[in-house]
Structure formats: structure tokens, C-alpha cells
């Protein structure tokens, strides 16, 4: 099923998405296709319903989170963000990364919850700034190559954020 997720939910194909409209459209699609609507139908029909409900869940996940949505828009635009293969990054970003990581290592070894929380909130605001740049890069400037670099950077930061969360859990 090669369905465009935006079309499935009757939403304009853009980074900016009205989340309430997405939620509501998702529920509406599920209430049309969910296998529970066809519990008494034949096996063939239930199978098709399950495939559509699976698609609706996949589409919802792809559009709900901003980073996933950006990745999906790149895919639609035929741009591969090369998340696995392309690790080349601008020098200033790499320097910043190293500083983040040093701080994380220090906070972990001193088991400092305030240091980790502080790091986490600064990282969050950095990610938010990058996400809004991602929005204008895709929607206004329509520069998907630049967007791909932002997506790669955000993936780095996302991973760092996960490590901070794990460290907080371990202390917690």
C-alpha cells in the first residue's frame, strides 16, 4: 500500500501540522478501518482491515513527532538523509558535541542530578531551536538538502538526550 500519509489524513503536505487535526483525523480513519469494526466479517476482510489499521498507526507515528515528520517529508521529496552512512558534520557542530559529551561524562561520574537536569533542559532548547529552523527550511525555503543535515544533527542530539535520560534513571 503506497499511500501518502498526509493524504490518508487529508492534511496538507508540510512540516507544520495542526496536531489536533492530526489526532482527530487519525481517530476518524481508525474508526473506519479498525479490525474491531469487522470482527464478524470473513477472514479476507479482517486481514485487509488489519493492514489498513496498521498503515494508519504507522502514518500517525510518522507525522506525530516533528523529527519523524521531517524524515518522512525528506523521503517523499526523494532525499536520503543518509543517517547511517553520512557522519560528516560541520566542525563547529562537532566541537559543540564534544563539549556536551564532556559535560555529560562529568555529570555522570559525579552522579549530579542538577547537572544532568540542567544539561537536559539546555539540550531541549537547542533541539527546539533546531526543529523550528527545520520547519522553515522545509516549508518556506524548501531546501531539502539543508533539511537533511539538520535531521542528522537532531539525531545526534536526540541520542545524547536519551543518554542523559538513562543516566538520570540510573541515579533516580
Amino acid at each position: 500500500m503506497n499511500t501518502n500519509f498526509f493524504e490518508l489524513f487529508h492534511l496538507p503536505q508540510s512540516y507544520a501540522v495542526d496536531l489536533q487535526q492530526l489526532d482527530s483525523a487519525y481517530r476518524d480513519v481508525q474508526s473506519q478501518v479498525h479490525p474491531d469494526r469487522f470482527a464478524m466479517a470473513s477472514e479476507a476482510e479482517r486481514r485487509v482491515a488489519m493492514q489498513w489499521a496498521t498503515l494508519a498507526n504507522e502514518a500517525y507515528q510518522a507525522l506525530k513527532k516533528p523529527l519523524a515528520r521531517a524524515e518522512y517529508l525528506l523521503k517523499l521529496g526523494g532525499v536520503d538523509p543518509e543517517l547511517e552512512s553520512n557522519t560528516s558534520m560541520p566542525v563547529d557542530f562537532l566541537m559543540a558535541q564534544m563539549e556536551w559529551r564532556e559535560e555529560l561524562a562529568e555529570a555522570v561520574s559525579s552522579k549530579s542530578v542538577p547537572a544532568l537536569s540542567g544539561l537536559s533542559s539546555r539540550l531541549q532548547s537547542e533541539m527546539n531551536a533546531m526543529l523550528s529552523r527545520l520547519g522553515s527550511t522545509i516549508d518556506q525555503e524548501q531546501d531539502l538538502a539543508a533539511a537533511a543535515l539538520l535531521v542528522r544533527k537532531l539525531k545526534f542530539l536526540h541520542k545524547l538526550d536519551e543518554e542523559i535520560e538513562n543516566a538520570l534513571d540510573a541515579i533516580g
Binding site: S24, A25, S42, A44, V48
Partner: peptide
């Protein structure tokens, strides 16, 4: 008839989904 039933179901779902209007979703 399994494949035919699947196609009918699929067509029927597609028809239902494309019939949605944004105004009806709210």
C-alpha cells in the same frame, strides 16, 4: 474468492476514506 473479497474490502475502505471531508473530521 478470498482475493476478490480482499479487493472488494480494500476498494470499499478506500472509497470510505476518500469520502471524508476535513469539515466532517472535527
Amino acid at each position: 474468492t478470498d482475493e476478490f473479497a480482499s479487493r472488494r474490502m480494500d476498494a470499499s475502505i478506500r472509497k470510505a476514506l476518500s469520502g471524508q471531508k476535513l469539515s466532517e473530521l472535527g
